[in-house]
């Protein structure tokens, strides 16, 4: 049962989430501005990292364990995928 009092966020928590979202748009712009594959992998992993942190902090502000779990999942799995991609790039 979810208490509706938990689910509401304070205004400064909204500000934190929106600032995080705005920062995470910068790597997307950077990916479109470069041609080098190595740099693209670095920016994409940075984007994934930031998005996972938005989800984790949103889950904790909201007091919801499940959303935080999803965030940790995205962080671990996304970074592992990027690591394998960069290993592939190293082999070529």
């Amino acid at each position: 049962m979810i208490n509706s009092a938990i689910a509401r966020l304070d205004s400064y928590q909204y500000i934190v989430i929106y600032v995080m979202l705005l920062i995470s748009l910068v790597p997307v712009l950077a990916v479109s501005r470069t041609n080098s594959t190595t740099e693209r992998i670095a920016y994409a992993s940075s984007f994934g990292n930031k998005l996972a942190f938005i989800i984790i902090s949103f889950g904790i502000f909201r007091g919801d364990w499940m959303i935080g779990c999803i965030g940790a999942f995205i962080l671990i799995v996304g970074d592992a995928g990027m690591l394998i991609l960069s290993l592939l790039e190293m082999r070529i």
Binding site: N49, A72, L75, I76, D79, A80, M82, L83, S86
Partner: peptide
Amino acid sequence: SLSLWNTIFSYIL
């Protein structure tokens, strides 16, 4: 996991 992944990642790049 964050510190481990990021460190290995920047070493590989």
